[in-house]
Design a protein around this nucleic acid. Structure first.
Lengths: 217, 217
DNA sequence: AAAATCAAAATATCAGATATTATTGCCAAT
DNA sequence: ATTGGCAATAATATCTGATATTTTGATTTT
């Protein structure tokens, strides 16, 4: 599990982004360079580069001449993010189902299996490793759309997924059995190459998650 | 026309982005810091911040430890960008037509009028100010979707538009009368609140532009 | 040709310094 | 008390120059 981080900059980027997504850096909070310097043990310049990247992805805001802030959350923003995720992920799913080859299927089966194991552990009460669960969730959703043959689409989707994830993490509650069913349903439809059904279930899945999250905000 | 640029960083960002989109910085070319320092009269740190932003938007690539390059172009990438633009812009258009109020209509009428004036000038042979024409084209397309009520959507669209524009600028040829008709058609459909027709025309408009550009690559 | 070697060039990172801008606290005027 | 102005203070944006690593290219060796 030792992740190779080629450069300090990229590892700082990952760490700060992670901390924003998982709520360790609170929405709206000020990102003072001096504080970050201690926290992430890196220099002014590297930090500013990182924060600029995160700004253009939308995780950080930087009003002119006033430094950096963690992008605030709001119901409207969550709604927008969820809608866009539906739009992009459903589109990608359709393409992926149309183009996916044997490797895609194999990878998908593996991803679903791992996610499912994790879900069973979560349901039996062991909610100790939420972060790992979210990682498997991500890997499953990615595996579903990975054969869409559009790098641009995958990269936009990845950002949206992370934005959506931040909201989920904010409310902290596990949706449980329903989500498990939904995953299974999408998975089966995808393997059966039933794009329409898969899209429908995916849309439902995202919207259910949205409702669940909105209710807890 | 004097655009206020609050900070050196943001103006450098705009200038470099502009130069990439308009082909002054060639696809695939190396962005050496020392060279850029002269060209844009700014410092190492500011440049690196700028290039990091552009990297995360996809206009620049930065393979680990090997500096910065202008993102190369390819037919596949153009196809992806065009498809995504269709997806996002049509979706935004539908929302915008549903939500647009009087201000939206007024603004749209103005934008179309300005674009049309420009198009007439272009068609009568005066192709001296391509950049201005592209600006009006952008303002028109933006005015169409501006009432979609999703900042996230507008910001993704803006990046895609610019990526698409870079390809158009590469081939340099004016599509002429057809595009004028298409703009008019979309405009009329939007004012008539005929979302289906407007979307159809927009999709056609983008795909025609794509064909035109691909043919010249 | 492929592999190994090594100097030169580029890159990533850092530590200050400085000018500019935002913030804050204080005082006077209403 | 509230407002407006202003100086003192704190932050920010930007720049310079230094250093450790890495990459690149040329050269040599296998």
């Amino acid at each position: 599990m030792t992740k190779q981080t080629p450069t300090i900059g990229s590892s700082t980027y990952q760490r700060i982004k992670h901390d924003i997504i998982f709520g360790l850096l609170e929405p709206g909070s000020k990102l003072k360079l001096d504080t970050l310097k201690e926290r992430y043990a890196t220099s002014n310049s590297t930090l500013r580069e990182t924060l600029n990247r995160l700004t253009s992805e939308g995780f950080v805001e930087s009003p002119a001449q006033r430094g950096f802030y963690v992008t605030p959350v709001s119901r409207e923003d969550l709604l927008e993010v969820a809608e866009l995720r539906v739009l992009l992920e459903c589109h990608a799913l359709e393409l992926s189902i149309a183009n996916g080859d044997t490797d895609w299927e194999g990878n998908l089966v593996a991803a679903h299996h791992k996610l499912h194991l994790m879900e069973e552990r979560m349901q039996s009460g062991d909610q100790s490793d939420k972060e790992m669960w979210k990682r498997y969730d991500w890997e499953f959703h990615l595996a579903m759309i990975e054969a869409c043959q559009s790098k641009n689409l995958l990269s936009l989707h990845s950002i949206l997924y992370d934005k959506y994830l931040r909201y989920q993490n904010l409310v902290l509650t596990y949706r449980g059995a329903e989500a498990v069913e939904e995953h299974k349903g999408m998975f089966d439809a995808a393997l059966a190459r039933d794009a329409e059904k898969a899209k429908e279930l995916l849309e439902l899945h995202i919207r259910n998650g949205l409702t669940h999250t909105l209710a807890a905000m």
